[in-house]
Simulated assay, not measured.
Amino acid sequence: MKRIALILLRIFTAFDWPLLLILVMFTALGLTVMHSAVGSTDWRFADQSRNFLIAFFAMWIVALTPPPLLMRLALPFYLVGVALLVGVDLFGETSKGATRWLNLGFTRIQPSEMLKIALPMMLAWYFQRHEGQVRIRDFLVAGALLVVPFFLIVRQPDLGTALLVFGAGFCVIYFAGLSFKLLIPVVLAAAIGIGTLVSYEEQLCQPDVDWVILHDYQKHRVCTLLDPSSDPLGKGFHTIQSMIAVGSGGLYGKGYMKGTQTHLDFIPERTTDFIYAVYAEEFGLYGGVMILVLYGLLIARGLTIATRATTQFGRLLAGALTMMFFIYVFVNIGMVTGILPVVGVPLPFMSYGGTALLTVGVACGMLMSINRYRGTKT
Rank of each mutant, 00 (worst) to 15 (best):
1 M>K: 13
23 L>V: 00
30 G>R: 01
33 V>S: 01
41 T>V: 12
45 F>Q: 10
71 M>F: 13
73 L>Q: 02
78 Y>R: 03
88 V>C: 08
89 D>W: 13
93 E>T: 14
106 F>N: 12
108 R>D: 07
110 Q>I: 12
114 M>D: 00
114 M>N: 02
122 M>Q: 10
124 A>M: 10
129 R>F: 01
130 H>L: 11
130 H>I: 10
137 R>F: 10
141 V>I: 15
141 V>P: 06
143 G>H: 07
156 Q>W: 08
158 D>S: 09
159 L>M: 13
163 L>F: 11
165 V>M: 07
167 G>M: 09
171 C>V: 15
177 G>Q: 12
177 G>W: 07
180 F>V: 13
181 K>H: 12
196 T>I: 14
202 E>H: 15
203 Q>V: 14
206 Q>G: 12
207 P>Y: 09
211 W>K: 06
217 Y>S: 08
218 Q>A: 01
218 Q>N: 04
232 P>D: 10
236 G>C: 06
237 F>D: 03
240 I>H: 09
241 Q>H: 14
242 S>K: 01
248 S>D: 05
250 G>W: 02
256 Y>G: 01
263 H>W: 06
264 L>K: 10
267 I>F: 05
276 Y>P: 00
277 A>W: 01
282 E>N: 07
282 E>S: 04
291 I>M: 09
292 L>K: 03
292 L>N: 04
294 L>N: 00
294 L>Q: 03
297 L>I: 05
303 L>R: 03
303 L>Q: 05
305 I>V: 14
306 A>H: 05
308 R>K: 14
309 A>Y: 03
311 T>W: 08
316 L>P: 05
334 G>Q: 08
337 T>C: 12
361 G>F: 07
361 G>W: 06
362 V>K: 06
364 C>E: 03
